[in-house]
Nucleic acid binder design. Structure first.
Lengths: 236, 236
DNA sequence: CTTGACTGGTGTACGCCGTACACCTAGCCT
DNA sequence: AGGCTAGGTGTACGGCGTACACCAGTCAAG
């Protein structure tokens, strides 16, 4: 009988191995020198072999984003303010570990499922803290770029999400219903935005309103510091 | 005598014409389909002709950024808060006109002179409003991505700025002194950051501190809204 | 009037990129 | 034993940025 081949040959490629190698390579050499060819060489394989595991380079980038976003700490229980603060700082640490990630996330046309999950659980922390969906909605926009670097296109994003279908071959992840089930908190604030009666704009949320909301939140806080003669803690 | 050639032939290329055509093309077709070849074709010229007016594609992008940043309204006189609010909203309008610009600005390694000038005059408005350089410094970081999409690397940026030298061939624009003269307000807050005595970190500014400053400013504002039962103005 | 330098547009060519497509091979199911 | 399939290969194409050699016109000095 044929004995089991015991030469290790090479660990077989998997989608996960490809994505993790890509993240490592981008960490090491920067995103702009991450090419399919370099990555393949890194894995000791011919470039086209990668295409058995990712559809194309865009999908590779989406997969890399999902991996690093998954590194963000899960939300902690308790006080909403502490919970969110910790979460955002954890996201920041991730972005410092993977300097290419913020630009990659922003340049992606659509939010990936992992990003949506992160956002969803953040909204969940707010609502658990007693925020109305209305306020939670505006707060997400205000945190915006602080959270991950998107500010407006959030709901365009969730509307179009579920971009490939290759990842989960038999999931009908195509329609809002699916998304609503997976990201209930996002769904809640999205519908809150659409449903607030005779809104100035049509359906969806008013980007200009959101932008000014965040801006004024900052300006008011700044004004308060200024009035109170605030000074940096670093020189006591 | 040789008569003046009256056939129009073709308006001669200039750096400015190249940059404006590039902006128009990016507005029309998106930044990812802006190639030297497309741009050249748009101008009725062979690709290599562009290189007589810009050093390479990176410099082309820098030039495009300078052009659109120059579209932001100059600062208004009077109340600092209104002045900055108006300025930021003007910047936002520019970014909506040129959807490629925010990503382009963020992906550039270094801030361009026009961006630095914009920042400098914003700092100037704060200082004119009576802000200490200390507070003005932190405020700039807090406004950060709201202002133009960078948050930390601001001072790394100004340190390395003056990137090409091809634009102003005989300017010795290479050293911080030059920059300090051109952007006095930026210089003021930069040195304020370096000089605050026994700072926790070394020279330069403490990115982590700045990030948390901005984050807490937002969280405190949000907490206040929450406590006061704030609700969207849109449904009175 | 000639000449020679300089400015700005041209043509060719190179190396890198993403990826379509045909192929091959090894293991597994029947 | 025979065929299906998953996964790795090789070749090739079109597009990209741009180095480099070249050339046409203009214009100042001799």
């Amino acid at each position: 009988m044929a004995e089991r081949v015991e030469t290790v040959r090479r660990a077989p490629l998997t989608r996960d191995r490809v994505l993790r190698a890509a993240v490592a390579l981008a960490d090491r050499t920067g995103i702009e020198s991450l090419s399919m060819r370099n990555l393949a060489q890194d894995l000791g394989v011919v470039p086209m072999a990668l295409y058995k595991h990712v559809a194309n380079k865009d999908e590779l980038l989406d997969g890399m984003i999902d991996i690093v976003v998954a590194e963000i700490d899960p939300p902690a229980a308790g006080d909403w303010k502490q919970a969110i603060r910790r979460r955002v700082l954890s996201a920041r640490r991730m972005l410092l570990r993977h300097p290419w990630a913020s630009l990659a996330i922003e340049s992606r046309a659509m939010a990936t499922p992992a990003v949506l999950a992160y956002l969803d659980s953040t909204v969940g922390a707010l609502r658990a803290g007693g925020f109305s969906t209305d306020l939670a909605h505006h707060v997400m926009h205000a945190l915006g770029s602080r959270v991950l670097g998107f500010s407006q296109e959030l709901f365009d994003a969730s509307r179009q999400a579920g971009r490939s279908g290759a990842t989960v071959p038999e999931a009908p992840a195509d329609l809002p219903p699916e998304m609503a089930a997976r990201f209930p908190n996002l769904a809640a604030i999205a519908t809150a935005a659409s449903h607030d009666g005779d809104s100035v704009v049509g359906p969806g949320c008013d980007d200009q309103f959101e932008f000014e909301f965040a801006l004024d939140l900052l300006l008011d806080g700044i004004e308060r510091l200024h009035r109170d003669g605030w000074t940096s803690h670093r020189t006591p």
